[in-house]
Design a protein around this nucleic acid. Structure first.
Length: 309
DNA sequence: ATCCAGGCTCCTG
DNA sequence: CAGGAGCATGGA
């Protein structure tokens, strides 16, 4: 039962299959599913759960996507919200050619961007989910982080069922805020992650942290708002601005993976320092976040040589 | 066992 | 203000 369906276009170049490939090879895809050549995940629109399904109809140079909402009756407003969400999710309106012009000026990064032409910023649908994911991911390997997220989702998120298949939903802030520290500890959250997670859930649930306001702020102001909260350092804030809000220039330069990749590709023979990464990144402005996305993709391809290169 | 993993806070000097 | 110790937990 499809309760809403439509087709939308994107700026080119856009390679939907690269997004699917990222999701398919990344252990971080806990809620997202790649089914055939479809992107699927459970989402809430006005609190009502749906299965969002996105698939590609066009080509890299003439991109078109099909958007389906399943698992419930959608109002026209919810359909419109789904389209809006998908446009943000895959950054469909990005003036991508501009990014490739800037990338091409860098002799090292240029070929990387060209090699993965059509790769685009992929968002986590909800800033709250992005924030909790970033906190979970602090200083632990992604595989274990995904395990923690999966446990959290199973415990507090609920799910939507379509055709007998259950699609998990990310927990709502108020539900998470009401969780007990003991329970999170039992899910293998460290004391720190437990405190941070409950803290941000509480802040969002009570309105202390208002994402609708935050998303309208200039990046540096948003960064200050976020880092004022205990447990949110610079890396976490930049990561959330990038993956949760879609700031294309947000740049988590302290990221371990970025430091590794930059150190390697720019011939340092060691881990680059955060400052060195930041200096490199200046050449990629105002697309530094896009550069980060590409480097992370490169890293992931190296870790998964099975995906045919 | 030892080191590492998509950091953060808090305490030194 | 910069630098580093300490923290927490599972995986390779």
């Amino acid at each position: 039962m499809v309760s809403f369906t439509t087709e939308i276009t994107a700026t080119s170049p856009f390679d939907f299959d690269l997004a699917l490939r990222y999701l398919h090879t990344s252990p971080s895809a806990v809620i997202e599913r790649v089914e055939g050549r479809c992107y699927q995940r459970g989402i809430r629109l006005d609190g009502q759960p749906f299965l969002l399904q996105v698939s590609s109809l066009g080509s890299v140079n003439a991109p078109r996507l099909r958007v389906d909402l399943l698992g419930g009756d959608a109002t026209p407003a919810q359909g419109a919200a789904a389209v809006e969400l998908v446009r943000r999710l895959f950054d469909l309106d990005a003036p991508a050619e501009e990014f490739y012009r800037i990338a091409a000026a860098d002799p090292v990064f240029g070929p990387v961007a060209a090699r993965w032409r059509g790769l685009r910023l992929l968002l986590i649908p909800d800033p709250f989910e992005a924030l909790v994911w970033a906190i979970i991911g602090q200083q632990i390997n992604v595989r274990f982080a995904a395990k923690l997220k999966a446990a959290l989702v199973a415990e507090y998120g609920g799910h939507v069922t379509v055709d007998g298949r259950r699609y998990p939903l990310f927990p709502e802030p108020a539900v998470l805020a009401a969780a007990s520290a003991e329970r999170l500890r039992a899910l293998q959250f460290s004391r720190q992650k437990t405190a941070y997670t409950l803290g941000v859930a509480e802040a969002v649930a009570t309105g202390t942290l208002d994402f609708t306001v935050l998303g309208t702020l200039p990046p540096d102001a948003a960064l200050r708002e976020l880092t004022a909260i205990k447990g949110i350092g610079r890396w976490t804030a930049e990561y959330v601005l990038l993956r949760g809000f879609g700031y294309r220039d947000a740049f988590p330069a302290g990221d371990g993976g970025l430091r590794r990749v930059v150190g390697h590709w720019y011939g340092l023979g060691r881990l680059a320092t955060e400052e060195e990464v930041r200096q490199r990144g200046e050449a990629w402005a105002p697309w530094r976040g896009y550069a980060a996305i590409h480097w992370w993709f490169v890293l992931q391809q190296r870790l998964h040589p099975r995906s045919s290169d």
